[in-house]
Write a protein that binds this DNA or RNA. Sequence first.
DNA 1: GTCTATATGGTGATAGAC
DNA 2: GTCTATCACCATATAGAC
Lengths: 187, 187
Amino acid sequence: MSKEAILEAAAQIIREKGYHAASMADIANAVDLSKATLYSHIDSKQAILVALLDQALETLIEDIQPVLTANVPADEKFRRAMHAFLSYMSENLDLSAVLLLEHRSLDPEKRGEHIPRRDEYESYWRQIIEEGVAEGIFTVEDPSLSAKVALGVASWTVMWFNPQGRLSAEQIADQSADILLEGFYKR
Amino acid sequence: MSKEAILEAAAQIIREKGYHAASMADIANAVDLSKATLYSHIDSKQAILVALLDQALETLIEDIQPVLTANVPADEKFRRAMHAFLSYMSENLDLSAVLLLEHRSLDPEKRGEHIPRRDEYESYWRQIIEEGVAEGIFTVEDPSLSAKVALGVASWTVMWFNPQGRLSAEQIADQSADILLEGFYKR
DNA sequence: GTCTATATGGTGATAGAC
DNA sequence: GTCTATCACCATATAGAC
């Protein structure tokens, strides 16, 4: 039994029930192990949560790097950032939901390490918007709020996105970027 | 000790810790009662959650009614809906967070009653957008998705809004509506 | 109405045999 | 590496005295 398989099963259960309601027995059951054997693969329940949040956030931060350094205008960067986020979200629904909704269950110490990384990710979105202002293609009153609005649109999709639904992640990213960019453009 | 005071304290604790991590001892402590006395005021922990979700959602649904029936164009209705939501959110932060984030902890039966009411609220936002299309002032590809985008912006604010922060709920509502409406307008 | 005390069951985590 | 059995603890909820 690989650690990856355990984390994947854990993500699904934690997403469904929430961190506290998800028991180690649930997780052990999902991967057909006894609780004791589960504990030979991982240190603690909290360690599972930390591993999940780290993995999800690190990947999102990695995925946005090529967007930031690409030689394209800010509006195109914004589109790519939205696509990267929704692509990751749709292919890692459980992990994304845990990242966005369960960080409050981190122990205070781990939470203190996590939040700055999360804020770093948000800063990349703000940076793209500020670039658009510097390029003269965006006019936004408040780039910091605009970034929160954009990331809010992206993040909230984990609450309703359905892989079997009418809209693909691509379509949602396209149309969300369309709507938001119109609000950013200089006119 | 009034039931309202108990629910208010419960909302704060459930918002902070999540439903499962919030214990009846925590809640009893917050209102200076013993656990047993707490149980003489409310039936169960689940009943607290149901009461909180009902109260929050009913108020939001009531608050949006005058917006829907007002004799103003759809863009003004949209602005008012955003203001109504953010006004309620900022004045009932704990309750709003519980409404938006804890409905998964409802027992299946209660959840089955809650979700349609929540969808009803979302339908009012979609209705406003469809009115704008009918009036010829909006051009949106997909009113259903546009409503989810707008409600996503509004809802995600509970994750970061700070009453002592730089931006008031009014300012956030203004600027969010500005950004989104530009994406809706016909051009 | 409010309390102390308790019933009953689930929780994270570990000991120790194989 | 995996298991059964168990520990110590915390949860929701209730009984019964005042």
